[in-house]
Simulated scan of single mutants.
Amino acid sequence: MNIFVLNVFLAVSWAALVGSFTLANLLIGYGTGYLALWIASPLFGKSGYFLRVWRVFRLLVLFVYDLIVSSLQVVWDVITPTHLSRPGIVALPLDAEGEGEILLIANLISLTPGSLSLDLSPDRKTLYVHAMFVDDPVTLRRGLKSGIERRVMEALQ
């Protein structure tokens, strides 16, 4: 049996045991099942499931952090009389090659306030990003590559 399917089964079983199929109960059940399966992982042999779940969780935490920080930055720029925004378009060279990786990178950038994925080059090696705060294009590129792109590639490999 696939470990992911077993983990989902444990999450649903937890919600049934508690008697309430809410998102919180399903997440608690998933986390509890993940921990139980991790402890019992020698029984399943070699599996990349546990590392992949951890990498997806880190990507989610990074995205939520970026979402909060950029939201506060945009709100501060909007409500204060001095506007600090310096909009610009930056070419982001991509190391990601798969369609899923590129799609997720572009969508996460677009979902973050103050940035928008504009276009992908025909050779799929460069993503053009419009950002609200481009004080230094090199710093912005480095931040996107070491943050979102790296974590997406880790999570999907």
Rank of each mutant, 00 (worst) to 15 (best):
residue 30 Y to L: 14
residue 30 Y to A: 12
residue 30 Y to Q: 04
residue 32 T to V: 15
residue 33 G to K: 09
residue 36 A to I: 15
residue 37 L to W: 00
residue 39 I to W: 11
residue 39 I to R: 07
residue 40 A to G: 10
residue 41 S to G: 06
residue 42 P to K: 12
residue 44 F to V: 05
residue 44 F to K: 04
residue 45 G to E: 01
residue 45 G to P: 00
residue 49 Y to N: 05
residue 50 F to V: 06
residue 53 V to E: 13
residue 54 W to K: 15
residue 54 W to G: 13
residue 57 F to M: 08
residue 58 R to A: 04
residue 58 R to H: 07
residue 60 L to H: 13
residue 61 V to D: 11
residue 62 L to F: 07
residue 63 F to P: 06
residue 64 V to H: 08
residue 64 V to L: 15
residue 64 V to K: 01
residue 66 D to G: 04
residue 66 D to H: 02
residue 66 D to Q: 09
residue 66 D to R: 10
residue 67 L to E: 10
residue 67 L to W: 09
residue 71 S to Q: 08
residue 73 Q to S: 13
residue 74 V to D: 01
residue 74 V to S: 04
residue 74 V to T: 07
residue 75 V to D: 03
residue 77 D to K: 01
residue 77 D to Q: 04
residue 78 V to I: 14
residue 78 V to K: 14
residue 79 I to F: 15
residue 81 P to Y: 02
residue 81 P to K: 00
residue 82 T to N: 14
residue 82 T to C: 12
residue 83 H to L: 15
residue 84 L to E: 12
residue 85 S to A: 14
residue 85 S to H: 05
residue 86 R to K: 15
residue 87 P to E: 08
residue 87 P to V: 06
residue 89 I to T: 05
residue 89 I to G: 03
residue 90 V to M: 05
residue 91 A to G: 02
residue 92 L to Q: 00
residue 93 P to N: 00
residue 95 D to L: 06
residue 95 D to V: 12
residue 95 D to I: 05
residue 96 A to G: 10
residue 97 E to R: 15
residue 97 E to L: 12
residue 98 G to Y: 11
residue 99 E to D: 15
residue 100 G to L: 10
residue 102 I to Q: 13
residue 102 I to T: 11
residue 102 I to S: 09
residue 103 L to D: 12
residue 106 A to H: 11
residue 107 N to P: 02
residue 107 N to A: 06
residue 109 I to W: 00
residue 112 T to L: 03
residue 112 T to S: 05
residue 113 P to V: 00
residue 114 G to S: 08
residue 114 G to P: 04
residue 115 S to F: 02
residue 115 S to E: 03
residue 115 S to D: 01
residue 117 S to N: 08
residue 120 L to N: 08
residue 121 S to V: 06
residue 121 S to C: 05
residue 123 D to G: 01
residue 123 D to F: 06
residue 123 D to S: 04
residue 124 R to W: 08
residue 125 K to Y: 04
residue 125 K to P: 02
residue 126 T to H: 05
residue 126 T to N: 03
residue 126 T to E: 07
residue 127 L to V: 13
residue 128 Y to N: 05
residue 129 V to F: 07
residue 129 V to Y: 09
residue 129 V to H: 11
residue 130 H to F: 11
residue 131 A to G: 14
residue 132 M to I: 06
residue 133 F to A: 09
residue 135 D to Q: 14
residue 136 D to G: 01
residue 140 L to F: 10
residue 141 R to K: 14
residue 142 R to K: 14
residue 142 R to L: 10
residue 142 R to A: 13
residue 143 G to I: 07
residue 145 K to D: 09
residue 145 K to P: 04
residue 149 E to R: 04
residue 149 E to S: 07
residue 152 V to A: 06
residue 155 A to Q: 00
residue 155 A to W: 01
residue 156 L to W: 06
